[in-house]
Design a protein around this nucleic acid. Structure first.
Length: 166
RNA sequence: CCAGUUGGUCGGAUGGCCGCUCUGCAUACCGCGAAAGCUCUGCAGGGAGGAAAGUCCGGGCUCCACAGAAACACGGUGCCGGAUAACGUCCGGCGAGAGAGAUCUUAGGGAAAGUGCCACAGAAAACGAACCGCCAGCAGCUGAUUCAUUUUAUUUGAAUCCGUCUGAAGGUAAGGGUGAAAAGGUGAGGUAAGAGCUCACCGCGGGCUCUGGUAACAGACCUGGCAUGGUAAACCCCACCGGGAGCAAAACCGAAUAGGAAUGGCGCGGGUCAGGAGCAAUUUCUGAACCAGGUUUGUUUGUGAACCAGUCAUUCGGGUAGGUUGCACGAGGCAUCUGGCAACAGGUGUCCCAGAUGAAUGGCCAUCAUGCAUUGUGCUUGUCUUGCGGUGUUACACCCUUGAACAGCGCAAUGUGAUACAGAACCCGGCUUAUAGACCAACUGGUUUU
């Protein structure tokens, strides 16, 4: 799982789906939602999951912001590790960028509550993305562990797709 | 023991599980690469602060400018001596102010170089002033006395005098009131009234004076004879200091896309229609007509050559994203000795002690310490209280004793919150601001005991 680092990535994810919980705001952007001429220029459409964290200055000073970001990072890490360990389907969809925006209550809530919030938000976001891609006539591919990154099929299918601008 | 002043130290601890980053060693299983290596995996070790904060000063370092500094402008500093790489910092003193004291505060040069300002009130806020008041003399009015004249009384005139009132021109700065501040203060003499007008003391100014001190300054003596209102955190003057921008500095490597330059190749064919092949097609073959850039030149008018435009390939340079360096051995920490009142300096030994870049240094849990609250218990200390108690006694004091309560201290249990302020970003020296709680040392004042 890579980190989002560029400002343009964050801005693009902010235009996608959004779920608000008490501890956090989860934003997501699925790569199949882009028009084909944009997708041709995208470099990282190889099934990777990328995630970024945002804690604004409204939350507090530097110490508070660091603490909120670290707790959210730990929650994300533990959720992913438990998904991999149990072997079942991960809550994170491939080819998707996530941004977790920390809120002030993430500082004082118990850690289990933060994990519950994150899992619930991920479920909702996954459902939204699934509905969206079905509307477009495509199904999101299942997260296979041996998913070949050099698969050319999705790109070709995107070329035929009507340019439904999101 | 209580209250306080100053300086300093720490600012949770231990353990478990799971992670992040850096360094070292090992490994070559998966992946990338021609290789070096990267990645992966395993082990070991390091991993936020006293302010990391504010970004207010001073430096190192880098680039730019000037290559000689100076001057002007602008900005800063401002008692003296020392420390320091430097400072607006620190140390030790001086002056002034606050406090009972330990101690604290202090932007503390120049106001007889100049300009300006001093609200309100007040006469006046300054080229040394005059509202009220006080005052001798002058002029006028009035009164009294004396003299002369006249007379029954009166009247008139002159002179003198004190007082009241009025007026003009003065004298004065005692007193009044205003104000943050009013032209030295108190006392005596003096005067028409007053006044440094004179004197004593105090204050103030001056001195190639003396003593102490490196100096700021302090003391003494002599002298002047009251001059110099305040404000420079108003302009200003004087002395000293400062070139500018900053690690997003700067150096190196450098993808894709667009554009630029050089070299070389092509300079050709292109679409339309008809027919054939083919399951079909944006594929292929054949034929037809049309179009097939510009300039120069040769020519048999078919077309050939050169250049430009166009197009393709290669190379180059600038340079973006990105990466590497800068970047952690330093005015370094700790211990100790020497010099110095101290800041600090020097010597010796020892240690290596964060390096992220959408930004690591963490998440969860357990135990403990500490804090707070409640309960229980004990102690003796203090306040209070009980007693046909004891001793001395004018009231009363002391000793013994009883105990409901309060305060204090110790111990135990339970609960609670989990610490306050706060997150390195090139690095040092400071300043300022924030900070729960704990501890140490020295000193001051009070109380008790000896």
């Amino acid at each position: 799982m890579d980190r989002l680092k560029k400002r343009s990535d964050f801005l693009r994810v902010a235009r996608g789906h959004k779920q608000v919980r008490r501890a956090l705001v989860l934003q997501a952007w699925h790569h199949q939602m882009v028009p084909p001429e944009q997708a041709a220029r995208e470099t990282s459409t190889d099934g990777a999951i990328r995630i970024g964290f945002t804690v604004t200055k409204k939350v507090g000073n530097a110490v508070v912001r660091n603490r909120v970001r670290r707790r959210l990072k730990e929650a994300v890490r533990l959720l992913e590790a438990s998904g991999n360990a149990s072997g079942q389907k991960s809550a994170f969809l491939p080819n998707t960028d996530y941004v977790v925006v920390g809120r002030l209550s993430a500082l004082t809530m118990s850690f289990a509550e933060i994990q519950r919030d994150l899992a619930a938000a991920l479920d909702k976001i996954g459902a939204q993305i699934g509905r969206r891609t079905r509307q477009l006539g495509k199904k999101p591919e299942n997260p296979a562990p041996d998913h070949s990154p050099t698969d050319q099929n999705p790109l070709k299918e995107q070329g035929i797709k009507p340019t439904d601008n999101v």
